[in-house]
């Protein structure tokens, strides 16, 4: 039996929450299973529309900003970790295990074991140290730290070239180089180049403040935009004139040349592309200098560019390249 007008009103008032189910409504409901079903269907529909209405109050696009950022951070941390593992190539598997434990801050590991991460020639790696410092290692570079890096001591040993984004902390972050020069910072961004074949260790400061200390006790304080140079044979520290953005060009695969000798360029290319370059005759290396920027992505493209800029030619045999006079 279809409800009469009186019952209709009762049903609507009940559903809209403007009145409790009236006695008449209850009576009508109990009159037949059909009536009971009608009322319970309406109640179901009403609850479902309530749900639909609530759904419209939640905005997934807005919420994704937060969730998407969180999972990207998660993914980046994993990728960095994976890249670092690739950089291990040849290192013992046990060391990889120690490293993974450290990254995730597990207790019960030997805090005295130094952990070393290194890149082969031809590869770069982005790593995040346990204290949150982000390090981009250029080719043929290596960084070691004790596994308790995050709790109080922030000392690392380093060789090669890297760009550091040091996590802010009251504890100084100290980089020890093989030749004895020390670099001390609180929270900052800098590039450090210590390749053994270059007699000078170069530090380029982008943000913050760093202090360089030589083994003989001299020191040099760098302000943003300044460059410091350490002479490995005389142990002298000095400011250097240069262009900071050129020093970090390698982060974007750019090579800036400023009256750079072919000799220095070849050792850079050897590291970056994992090749051996032979200069015939050797004095080509000191005779030829370049100024400009190389943005080529492959070694052959770079060599082609160099043959345009100077009177040289090249031959490639596997990973060996012979550069000779034209």
């Amino acid at each position: 039996m279809s409800p009469d007008n009186k019952i209709k009103e009762h049903i609507i008032d009940h559903l809209t929450g403007e009145q409790n189910p009236s006695d008449e409504l209850n009576e009508w409901k109990n009159q037949s299973p059909e009536n009971d079903k009608t009322l319970s269907d309406f109640q179901k529909i009403w609850r479902a529309t309530d749900f639909v209405s609530n759904m419209q109050k939640f905005d997934s696009k807005h919420a994704w900003r937060k969730v998407g950022a969180t999972i990207l951070r998660e993914q980046k941390r994993k990728t960095n970790f994976q890249k670092a593992i690739y950089a291990f190539s040849g290192m013992a598997a046990s060391l990889i295990l120690v490293f993974s434990l450290t990254i995730f801050n597990q207790p019960n590991i030997n805090h005295q074991n130094p952990i070393t991460l290194s890149t082969e020639n031809g590869s770069k790696a982005e790593i995040t140290l346990p204290d949150g410092t982000e390090v981009t290692l250029n080719s043929g570079s290596s960084i070691s730290y004790l596994s308790n890096l995050s709790d109080g001591i922030r000392d690392v040993s380093f060789s090669g070239e890297a760009f550091f984004k040091v996590a802010k902390s009251k504890v100084p972050f100290v980089v020890q180089t093989a030749s004895g020069m020390k670099l001390k910072v609180l929270g900052t961004q800098f590039n450090l180049s210590t390749y053994a074949e270059n007699n000078h260790i170069e530090t380029t400061l982008l943000e913050g403040k760093v202090e360089l200390t030589s083994p003989n006790g001299n020191n040099l304080i760098l302000e943003p935009g300044q460059m410091g140079s350490y002479n490995q044979s005389t142990q002298n520290l000095a400011y250097k004139i240069g262009t900071p953005s050129h020093e970090i060009g390698w982060l974007n695969n750019k090579i800036y040349l400023d009256n750079t000798s072919l000799e220095s360029l070849t050792s850079l290319l050897e590291r970056q592309f994992n090749v051996q370059i032979l200069l015939v005759p050797t004095k080509l290396g000191t005779d030829i200098h370049y100024t400009g920027v190389l943005e080529e992505k492959t070694i052959t493209d770079i060599l082609d560019a160099l043959t345009q800029l100077s009177d040289i030619k090249y031959k490639i045999k596997g990973t060996e390249i012979i550069i000779s006079a034209k």
Partner: peptide, 30 residues
């Protein structure tokens, strides 16, 4: 990442409305 974002857009409002049904707290539901 992309398929996850799609999954999120598809079900986020529905799941929030559902959590809201239980918690009656919109912020907590999100």
């Amino acid at each position: 990442y992309t398929s996850f974002n799609e999954l999120f857009n598809l079900y986020y409002p529905r799941l929030c409305a559902y959590a809201y049904q239980i918690t009656k707290n919109p912020t907590a539901s999100e």
